[in-house]
Design a protein around this nucleic acid. Structure first.
Length: 579
RNA sequence: GCGCCCGUAGCUCAGUCGGAUAGAGCACCAGAUUCCUAAUCUGGGGGUCGCAGGUUCGAAUCCUGCCGGGCGCGCCA
């Protein structure tokens, strides 16, 4: 609908070259917005105010000369200049009726934009280390990322979703040794569990399932003989060394890989149950085995952006806005995690993705300049990488903050949260706040089946509409949608007009939410839409004796159901027929 | 110390590219059902948009400084 107004303005300006020249760099559509107050019409443009200064005329004069050039349209009832120089458009009833027919015609496609070739987007999210189950913080990354992916697709983009599996490095050794120690325990060899190991119960479960091959059980004395005391980091290092010497490198690797795969598969199941799926699980190990880190480092070398100092190889990150240079190869010859990161992003770009979007926890903010700098150093634009940082989640129960510590394995898992409040409420609450806002997740509200739960409020509107049609059937009446579409002019009640207006905003909301990667706009919109529907429901009966009015009202109500269902689908929330 | 994010009603938060009288929900108060699901609806009170400057036709929004909260600053992963 917005484009109707923008086009009218555009053709009017075409007749005013002296004005049009002044705003060559402004998209006319960007001057058009919904009005907040219906007495100002449906849409307003501030274009005259923006033109006033360069044109050296008063905003109202500019507005008047534009309005004079506007051609008549059956979509517009009235145009007026108001306030400091707004041009207000009052759309016709016919325009809204047309939109209603569009909603019915397009159904589940309503609000989606046609596919566009570019940019191809690679969306990376969650990417939690595979050292244990996902917790509630990862849940927010999952829900946010999945919803952003859905929004971008609705906006016409091609999106691939990827999970980066940190399956290399020391943490995998620690996982392996943790599982080994738990396995030994199950065989009767028990020592105090190391502080630096992974202590969650899931480690015992893995140890119980694992195939250890011909591994021999050693005694506690053999296990602890000569181990360092006091320093927990040194202790875990020594235990890893002991595992390798006892099991052999292959034997230890076997435990390590099984443990990793067990956890990774569990994460995949957990997310799938949450409605979050990925096109690819990208292994960090594969960066090394396929030589991608070396390739990236060679590209950096070639562009002259690395140098040697103190026996290490450094990336000139300061040349790209970072506060200090970063090591890529340590003096001991090992590559850093940062080297993997830039290699991974270099590879994403080389696979043909134009735009890389990373959804990361807020503690990763230092990473943005560095990786963007790495891309720039390798010949790509730093702007090709967008990082959305998602702030932390605090759980509240009975008005109290729920204490969570990662240490000691005492944290609430995503699975526990989903079991407690349900997938729908979890998906909804996670995206109801801006990603750069800390999230206070109130378990009691998410669980409550009552009026203070916004998820149910929206779902209830959908179920009520389904119920209206069940009633229709019970009364042996039929809905003639053709008749309904022919009689939309009967929809004259204020609640009907309000609902029509809100429905017609949906495509704009999708576009806005997608462009800003801001699902909370859609959440708020759906709440508004449900509110308009409930108000209508309470004010008027839909199944009336008058066939034409009934058919028309059922068109409006059906359109409402379509838009609610479409919006909830993007959020990953179900749209129930009954509640 | 440096960097990033946040500060809007009692509470939790929206507020698009700077736009007209700053909005929701919860909580609080008062009402609505012979009728399609009351998990609903209607009305009401409640604001120094952290503070101080600046930019301009116009600032919650942009700029500077300050105050308060969170997070991050490794040849860890």
């Amino acid at each position: 609908m917005k484009s109707v107004v923008a086009q009218l303005l555009e053709s009017a300006l075409a007749k005013l070259p002296e004005l049009a020249d002044l705003i060559a760099d402004i998209a006319i559509e960007s001057t058009v917005e919904r009005t907040r107050d219906s007495s100002h019409g449906d849409f307003a443009s501030n274009i005259a105010m923006r033109l006033a200064k360069p044109a050296r005329k008063s905003p109202r004069d500019v507005a008047a000369s534009i309005v004079k050039q506007l051609s008549d349209s059956d979509q517009v009832d009235k145009v007026e200049v108001a306030g400091p120089g707004f041009i207000n458009f009052h759309l016709s009833a016919a325009a809204f009726q047309q939109e209603l027919r569009t909603i019915l015609d397009q159904g589940i496609c309503y609000g989606r934009q046609p596919a566009r070739e570019r940019p191809r987007i690679l969306l990376e999210f969650v990417s939690a280390n595979p050292t244990g189950p996902l917790h509630v913080g990862h849940g927010r990354l999952a829900a946010f990322g999945a919803t952003v992916g859905n929004l971008l697709e609705a906006a016409g983009y091609t999106v691939e979703r990827e999970y980066y599996v940190n399956d290399a490095g020391r943490q995998m050794d620690i996982l392996g040794v943790s599982v080994w120690l738990r396995w030994l325990e199950s065989q009767g060899t028990t020592i105090p569990f190391p502080e630096a190991g992974y202590r969650g119960d899931y480690v015992r479960d893995i140890a119980g399932d694992i195939d250890t091959g011909d591994a021999t059980v050693i005694s506690a004395e053999e296990l602890t003989d000569g181990l360092p005391e006091g320093d927990m980091e040194a202790l875990i290092e020594a235990l890893i060394a002991r595992a390798i010497e006892t099991l052999g490198p292959d034997g230890f690797d076997r435990i390590r890989q099984q443990s990793l795969e067990s956890i990774r598969a569990d994460i995949e199941d957990d997310l799938a149950e949450f409605g979050v799926t990925f096109d690819r699980w990208y292994s960090e190990q594969s960066l090394t085995t396929e030589g991608r880190i070396d390739a990236a480092l060679a590209a950096l070398e070639k562009s002259g952006n690395v140098y040697e100092r103190d026996g290490a190889i450094w990336f000139r990150a300061t040349d790209f806005g970072d506060e200090k240079d970063r090591v890529v190869i340590r003096a001991n010859g090992k590559k850093t995690y940062f080297a993997s990161d830039i290699a991974y992003h270099f590879d994403k770009r080389q696979r043909g993705f134009d735009l890389l979007i990373d959804i990361l926890g807020a503690d990763h903010h230092g990473y943005v300049t560095r990786v963007g700098g790495g891309l720039a150093a390798m010949g790509y634009a730093a702007d090709d990488l967008i990082v959305d940082l998602v702030q932390f989640v605090a759980l509240y129960r009975d008005g109290e903050k729920v204490a969570m510590t990662t240490r000691g394995g005492k944290f609430i898992t995503l699975r526990q949260l989903r079991n407690e409040v349900g997938n729908d409420a979890a998906r909804f609450f996670y995206v109801s706040r801006s990603n750069d806002q800390h999230l206070d997740f109130d378990l009691d509200i998410a669980k409550s089946e009552s009026n203070d739960n916004p998820v149910y409020y929206i779902q209830y509107a959908h179920a009520r509409i389904a119920s209206v049609f069940r009633q229709l059937e019970e009364r042996s009446l039929e809905w003639n949608d053709t008749s309904g579409c022919d009689n939309l002019s009967l929809l004259v009640e204020p609640q009907e007009k309000k609902l029509l207006t809100t429905l017609s905003r949906y495509p704009e909301v999708i576009e806005l939410s997608a462009n800003n990667r801001a699902p909370q706009h859609l959440v708020h919109y759906l709440r508004d839409l449900a509110n308009d529907f409930h108000t209508y429901y309470n004010a008027h009966v839909f199944i009336v004796d008058d066939d034409k009015l009934r058919d028309a009202r059922l068109v409006l109500v059906t359109a409402t159901r379509i838009v609610i269902a479409n919006g909830l689908a993007i959020l990953g929330v179900s749209a129930p027929e009954t509640m």
